[in-house]
Write a protein that binds this DNA or RNA. Structure first.
Length: 271
DNA sequence: AGGCGTACCTGAGGGC
DNA sequence: TGCCCTCAGGTACGCC
């Protein structure tokens, strides 16, 4: 489900909604989705105050006053939903619920149960091996070129590799490649400087615009208040197999690369 | 090293 | 209606 723009939107909403609240209790209805253990969360979290909420790649990071953090990956269908005091029951498919002292709740809900919530101790290096943040100033076209250099992997699955660039998922990889007119199968290291620069600009641009619009809601994604995003209406290529390409009129195809659906136009994404 | 298939799960939607 | 198949925004693992 959520990629960088969706997780960023959720994190911003959570930061507004729960910063400063104190955790009173933790309910874990599906223990296998929490690390290191449900018992540890239930023992440690009560009394903790929320210091802030951020994002790293596709991880939402709930920072606590003690320096601990709750690091959450939503995988495909995970949701983080804030409920006001007096909510009639947990949000559907809630696996973990934080109860705050003011009567409000944070529900970690996930129908497919792939998502995970991990308690991290102060100073614990949980983000080792995660790649560049594409919306940081340091992620320049030159830096992008250095990341791609010499890589034979096709550019599309390469963009999905979280060890290289963090936060890009299937939707925005397809959209950026389409916008830059780059063929998904092109070896990453084979792109000319001009096409690299174009792809860099498209990737950063599409992510930034999606953040501005609050992400893409296709099947499941909603923000921390349960609201849908606004970018799904802006999608040019994702999910449009059989339709005419919005740029050249060619037919959009869906192929499979590294097990993922890949939407592109054979006519105008030629190299 | 890195590519590939598979596994993890549930739900939605299409074909018949 | 309902059964069966495929597909889904992600990643970890084992196997070449």
């Amino acid at each position: 489900m959520p990629e960088l723009p969706e997780v960023e939107t959720i994190a911003r909403g959570l930061a507004r909604a729960i910063t400063g609240k104190t955790i009173e209790a933790v309910d874990v209805t599906l223990p296998r989705v929490v690390l290191p253990s449900a018992a540890r969360l239930k023992r440690v979290l009560p009394g903790e105050r929320i210091a802030g909420v951020g994002r790293r790649g596709k991880f939402a990071v709930i920072e606590l006053d003690s320096g601990r953090a709750l690091v959450i990956h939503l995988r495909m269908t995970g949701r983080l939903i804030v409920q006001p005091p007096g909510a009639t029951g947990p949000y559907p498919y809630t696996n973990v619920r934080l109860r705050f002292s003011d009567g409000s709740h944070l529900c970690f809900a996930d129908a497919r149960t792939f998502g995970r919530m991990r308690l991290v101790e102060p100073g614990e290096a949980w983000a080792d091996g995660i790649g560049d943040e594409p919306l940081e100033p340091a992620f320049t076209a030159e830096r992008f070129g250095a990341i791609l250099r010499g890589r034979p992997t096709p550019i599309k699955p390469f963009l999905l590799d979280q060890r290289r660039i963090a936060g890009v998922g299937n939707i925005y990889a397809c959209e950026a490649l389409w916008e830059a007119q780059v063929r998904p199968t092109a070896p990453a290291g084979s792109l000319s400087a001009a096409r690299r620069a174009r792809l860099h600009a498209s990737l950063v641009g599409v992510l930034r615009k999606a953040v501005d619009l609050g992400g893409s809601s296709i099947d499941d994604y909603v923000d921390a208040e349960g609201m849908e995003g606004g970018f799904q209406g802006e999608l040019s290529i994702y999910g449009r197999d059989g339709e005419a390409c919005a740029r050249c009129g060619g037919t959009v195809v869906r192929t499979v690369m590294a097990g993922r659906g890949t939407w592109w136009c054979r006519r105008c994404q030629r190299r």
